[in-house]
């Protein structure tokens, strides 16, 4: 199943990926930790642990990483993780931001891939470095300053993708809560297009509004939401990639649900 949007595919399904691997027409990125990758992974995948990317995600560094993974402007890239697609999304978004237009997410997680009995191995592929260009797509990035001014417009929807209790406890004023768990369905990292559309419609997330997503700290959960929004063809979406952690560090205003001890309802 692929979700075609104006800007192209969001997801790559299991079968397409297998045939692309056979045809050697794809660069697969595994964003799990190095040890997990070494044990086994999807054949031909290279490893880019998210932590490695995050240690310095300046465009210059990302460009080097991308080159070293043998990716040029034309390379078709599929990213996967074992964390319901959130880490993969963050990496995919980073490539997009760099100006890479041909990147998709595997429709499912690595655990599920394995549970289906699909091929995996522990070989690290030989990679020939390539040259990627840099055309930063600032229209998909929200900075704190940008967010602060955008928030004052009423055609902007700000979405918080953390869990509900965290949202109730503290959030950016005006945000709506859409926990990342809402976006998946059973074994797929994203719901089907119809399901997703209905969910967003009910929430008034439609039409031509500009949409900004954020989460707790590094833009993973909200990265997944970024792709969820794109999967239903909502074109004008930005990721506040430094998210709530930065917002709080900058001591910008926050809001909470007052007068209720909701935490005491949760079981441990």
């Amino acid at each position: 199943m692929c979700c075609l949007t104006k800007s192209g595919k969001i997801l790559t399904d299991v079968d397409s990926l297998r045939s692309e691997i056979r045809d050697k027409s794809v660069r697969v990125i595994d964003v799990r930790r190095e040890n997990d990758y070494k044990q086994d992974h999807i054949p031909t995948a290279v490893n880019l642990p998210l932590a490695n990317l995050l240690s310095d995600d300046s465009p210059e560094r990302v460009l080097k990483l991308v080159n070293s993974m043998g990716i040029d402007d034309e390379t078709s890239v599929v990213v996967y993780d074992d964390t319901f697609g959130a880490l993969a999304s963050r990496v995919a978004w980073t490539l997009e931001y760099l100006g890479h237009s041909n990147v998709t997410l595997l429709e499912t997680t690595y655990s599920h891939w394995k549970s289906l009995g699909l091929e995996n191995d522990s070989k690290t592929p030989e990679i020939q470095s390539k040259e990627h260009s840099m055309h930063l797509r600032s229209e998909i990035l929200a900075t704190s300053d940008y967010l602060e001014s955008a928030k004052t417009r009423d055609d902007v929807i700000l979405i918080d993708n953390r869990e509900r209790l965290n949202f109730l406890e503290q959030h950016i004023p005006g945000a709506i809560s859409l926990p990342y768990r809402t976006l998946a369905s059973n074994d797929h990292i994203l719901r089907s297009k119809d399901d997703m559309k209905r969910l967003f419609d009910n929430r008034g997330i439609t039409g031509n509004s500009e949409i900004i997503t954020y989460c707790g700290s590094v833009g993973t959960l909200s990265g997944l939401a970024y792709y969820a929004l794109k999967s239903v063809g909502l074109p004008n979406t930005k990721l506040y990639v430094r998210s709530f952690k930065e917002w709080k560090n900058l001591q910008k205003p926050t809001e909470k649900q007052e007068d209720a001890s909701y935490w005491d309802l949760s079981a441990e």
Binding site: E163, L168, P179, R181, Y262, S266, A267
Partner: peptide, 10 residues
């Protein structure tokens, strides 16, 4: 409960 509530039920 994970998707729409607080990750707990009662």
């Amino acid at each position: 409960s994970e998707q729409y509530s607080i990750g707990s039920a009662h």
